[in-house]
């Protein structure tokens, strides 16, 4: 007995130039906001961009983008709708934004299903908003998506950074490319994350201050792109450090 779905995944992704998972060992560090801002910024800079919410049990990007009633089309697979100029995929189309209580095996199966049937078309970037930790979603992407790269988000807290350190160790041991680390919600100018990032041999991509305007910007693309968070992401994109 063979699961035929995994064989077709890299074929489905072959017209995407870069596939970036926005990830962290911890939850609540700003992965979803950074992923969404990054996707929107790349798209505004003229790239074709997809955004895939892989945090199946706690999806957030649809709220950040203010997705209303978009639905995928069916044509030799699933064609995700374009939302705020992003080719946007989320389990919420099928859970109808209700609770989806999934065990590891279920998240894995749902992830394989969506990767096997989603027709992304041609994209410059596919940004993936990840659940926290180094569980099923991270392991499945490493296993199934040949060209996956990770962008890691942390906060200044030791509690966040130590989870990131473990994630980095895993990715480095498996030789999975790491673009670098973004430090989010900074409230002092302590440089410890920057120093530790250098010790890990990784690029320190950006520091984003705590910005009270972020909360008001949820659901409003224009407001979101006006936040300091988005401006820092814009600088990152412009710097070519990606």
């Amino acid at each position: 007995m063979v699961d035929p779905r995994t064989t077709i995944i890299n074929e489905r992704l072959k017209r995407i130039s870069r596939i970036i998972a926005v990830s962290s060992g911890k939850g609540g560090v700003g992965k979803s906001l950074v992923a969404t801002a990054l996707a929107l910024t790349l798209s505004r800079s003229g790239c074709k961009v997809g955004l895939f919410d892989l945090d199946f049990t706690s999806p957030s990007t649809h709220l950040i983008l203010g997705v209303k009633d978009a639905q995928p089309k069916e044509d030799k697979g699933i064609i995700p709708p374009v939302v705020n100029s992003l080719t946007y995929m989320s389990l919420i189309y099928y859970s109808h934004d209700q609770a989806a209580p999934l065990r590891g095996i279920d998240t894995s199966n749902a992830l394989i299903e969506l990767l096997a049937v989603t027709q992304w078309g041609e994209l410059d970037f596919l940004i993936i908003d990840m659940p926290p930790g180094i569980g099923d979603a991270v392991l499945d992407l490493i296993r199934l998506v040949k060209r996956i790269e990770f962008l890691i988000v942390t906060t200044p807290s030791l509690l966040a950074f130590e989870t990131v350190r473990k994630q980095v160790a895993l990715l480095q041991s498996l030789k999975v490319p790491i673009i670098g680390i973004v430090e989010n919600m900074k409230m002092t100018n302590a440089a410890n994350v920057q120093d530790e990032t250098a010790k890990l041999g990784l690029k320190f991509l950006a520091e984003i201050p705590y910005d009270a305007k972020v909360e008001e910007a949820i659901g409003d693309e224009t407001k979101l792109l006006g936040t300091v968070l988005a401006k820092k992401i814009k600088q990152l994109v412009a710097s070519n450090a990606l």
């Binding site: 699933i78 389990l91 109808h96 209700q98 989806a100 999934l102 279920d106 749902a110 299903e113």
Partner: peptide, 9 residues
């Protein structure tokens, strides 16, 4: 039909 796991919903 599209994602059998949403059965849990």
């Amino acid at each position: 039909h599209f994602v059998p796991e949403v059965a849990h919903t």
